[in-house]
Design a protein around this nucleic acid. Structure first.
Length: 644
DNA sequence: TCCTGGAGCGC
DNA sequence: AGGCGCTCCAGGA
């Protein structure tokens, strides 16, 4: 039954309300129309700290609207420019009962730059709610929205006892917002915004760019958008900034810019199309994907797969910590219940992981060959048919690692190998279409799909070892890493015994071979031969030449620097690659990283002998020491960043 | 001196 | 609300 949503149907703030009597009456449309375009509203806030209550209060809100956004095609760069000219708004209210500067009042009166001046915080909150109601965005987007912006916003809505607070979402909610925001159980932001997607670019950037070190707006604008921003104030503004026209104007501009940058980040990272692909692959809920719930995505993927293959199979219960303890106590009635203190941080490892070789330390000045297994763990699952449907996981629960045996050969393909095989097939198909496609926008779209498939396949293993996962199966995770270690070791033995190759290092799925060669053709030939010899031993497992390095400095496990040959056809074109050294770590200051970087450059320089390089490094150290002593280094260079 | 955590990397 | 491995550095016994 379709209702026009009127006052009598106070369920949602939507145009229509649909009521269905039974889930059986829902079916999938045969000819699916394309997904409708989405309205995206980027929001950004500036807070002040109330001097007495010491609580965050909202002082400035900016919004940038981007209408008609496709969730399947990535946004083209031309569209991003369009966003800047789309209807923006920025609203400000007086702080500490002091009127805002006359110039700002004038701007607001003449509506310059979409500026709205409101008398107090309550009015500011209502202004935002009215805007959201009017624009009715499908997506509310911003940087650190879930951790800060919207969280504070909801707290202020609650504190100010704002009427009809649920207008921020699409579901009419009469719940006591105060009780909601004070509850420690989970994040209440998504619940309050039911009916809209919350896209937090901080969450998305952390997931999609895990190698980034600094996730602040200016840092991401520089590294991802190639935009250098002016020096900025903090999200937490000082009351003094509200007293002068110039500083307040800067604050307002910055607030609008934050919303705009956040929108561009989401576009550049293709967060909407990618999260939609991830969601449609796993069959979970889109808003959850945006919250980064990886384990839940895998859970849904496997639930759907099981329902398809073994429709009569009962799914395993999802056990809470309490449930697990109770079960354990029941199965071992004699044993004392061990009280394990769960700390917030990382726990001790529960089983063995990848093999890391002791590196043969030193500076290598002839070609080093790096070979990598493609998707090692997904490949192992397929290669050995590892699954809870091919092995008795319960029987192995308390067994030692070396007692866990591989499934017998000849068993039917398990669920996990099947899921992975199908993902691999899908990805291959997408890539094939990509090659033929001419339209650049469609290529980008396909690229996002293949990336989503890869991410999904690669996160399956992690969920097998994750205690709170519905499909938690430690014996499987153990067996997978064990096979990984053995596979790498067999490869090393083969390289040594059959090729007389010198393996200088290796980590989990990779090995580094010092070839001693100076002829790229011979290096390639060796790599190809090694690769062929390894790959012929497996059905699914596959090793590949990952890189060739002209020079390599190998210091410790997980710490090395090297000059990588950018393309095998142009061996002269070298790119520096650094792993684990101090200069890639933020807990060392800029000066230290700079000195370290200089040293690495010298040591890896093709034109220098080791002695000359060391000489240059020592000279530089003297020079820097002198600069330090004579106070010529900017204070900025001494800042270290480290979480506590 | 030995041992435990945390950070923050690498894979 | 994926996993483990390995430096480093602090701090306590």
């Amino acid at each position: 039954t379709l209702f026009r949503s009127k006052l009598c149907e106070r369920i949602a703030y939507t145009k229509f309300v649909v009521r269905v009597d039974s889930p059986e009456k829902i079916c999938v449309m045969k000819d699916q129309p394309g997904a409708p375009p989405l309205t995206v509203l980027a929001l950004s806030f500036k807070m002040v700290l109330h001097p007495k209550t010491n609580q965050h209060e909202i002082a400035v809100v900016a919004g940038v609207l981007m209408p008609e956004v496709s969730s399947s095609t990535p946004v083209e760069s031309g569209m991003i420019m369009h966003a800047a000219s789309a209807p923006n708004f920025v609203a400000v209210r007086p702080v500490n009962h002091k009127p805002v500067p006359i110039g700002i009042q004038e701007q607001a009166r003449t509506k310059t730059g979409g500026l709205e001046l409101v008398p107090n915080e309550q009015a500011l909150l209502n202004f935002v709610l009215a805007k959201v109601m009017k624009l009715d965005p499908d997506v509310i987007l911003g940087h650190d929205l879930t951790g800060f912006g919207l969280d504070v916003f909801l707290n202020r809505l609650a504190s100010c006892k704002t009427r009809d607070w649920s207008r921020i979402g699409r579901l009419i909610q009469r719940k006591d917002l105060n009780a909601m925001v004070k509850s420690k159980l989970g994040n209440h932001v998504p619940d309050a915004l039911a009916g809209r997607l919350v896209l937090d670019t901080l969450v998305s950037a952390k997931e999609l760019c895990p190698r980034e070190k600094d996730y602040s707006i200016p840092a991401l604008a520089e590294s991802l958008l190639n935009r250098k921003l002016h020096p900025r104030t903090d999200a937490l503004a000082t009351p003094i900034a509200f007293e002068y026209e110039q500083t307040l104007n800067a604050l307002l501009r910055e607030c609008v810019q934050d919303a705009e940058i956040s929108l561009q980040l989401s576009n550049t990272l293709s967060v909407l199309p990618l999260s939609r692909q991830l969601t449609s692959l796993s069959g979970n809920v889109w808003s959850k994907t945006l919250r980064g719930a990886r384990a839940e995505r895998i859970e849904f993927l496997l639930c759907h797969e099981l329902a398809l293959i073994k429709p009569k199979l009962l799914l395993p219960d999802k056990l809470s910590k309490y449930d697990r303890k109770a079960l354990e106590a029941a199965s071992n009635p004699g044993s004392a219940i061990v009280q394990t203190e769960e700390k917030a941080g990382r726990r001790k490892p529960q089983y063995a992981g990848g093999l890391v070789l002791e590196p043969k330390k030193g500076l290598y000045d002839r070609y080093v060959l790096q070979l990598d297994f493609n998707s090692l763990y997904p490949s192992i699952i397929q290669e050995y048919n590892i699954c809870f449907t091919t092995m008795d996981v319960d029987a192995m629960k308390n067994k030692a690692e070396d007692e866990i045996e591989l499934p017998e050969a000849g068993l039917a393909e398990g669920v996990l190998p099947r899921v992975l095989r199908r993902l691999v097939e899908q990805r291959r198909a997408v890539k094939a279409v990509m090659k033929k496609e001419q339209d650049a926008a469609k290529v980008k779209q396909l690229d996002i799909r293949q990336l989503a498939i890869k991410l999904t396949a690669n996160s399956l293993y992690g969920c097998l070892g994750f205690e709170n996962s519905r499909f938690f199966a430690r014996p499987l995770a153990q067996l997978i890493t064990l096979q990984g270690r053995e596979t790498l070791q067999r490869t090393i033995d083969l390289a040594r015994d059959s090729f007389n190759a010198e393996v200088i290092y290796g980590d989990t799925d990779s090995l580094f071979v010092y070839t001693g060669l100076e002829d790229m053709m011979k290096v390639r030939a060796l790599g190809t031969e090694l690769k062929r010899e390894v790959n012929k031993r497996y059905k699914t497992l596959e090793i590949e030449i990952d890189a060739v390095y002209a020079r390599m400095l190998l210091l410790k496990k997980k710490k090395y620097a090297a000059m990588k040959v950018a393309s095998l056809n142009e061996p002269q074109n070298l790119v520096r690659e650094v792993k684990g050294l101090d200069l890639v770590r933020h807990d060392w200051c800029g000066l230290s990283r700079m000195v370290s970087s200089f040293a690495v450059d010298q040591l890896l320089s093709k034109d220098l002998s080791a002695d000359d390089a060391i000489g240059n490094v020592l000279t530089n150290l003297d020079f820097i020491a002198n600069q330090v002593m004579t106070n010529q280094i900017a204070l900025q260079q001494y800042i270290i960043t480290r979480s506590l």
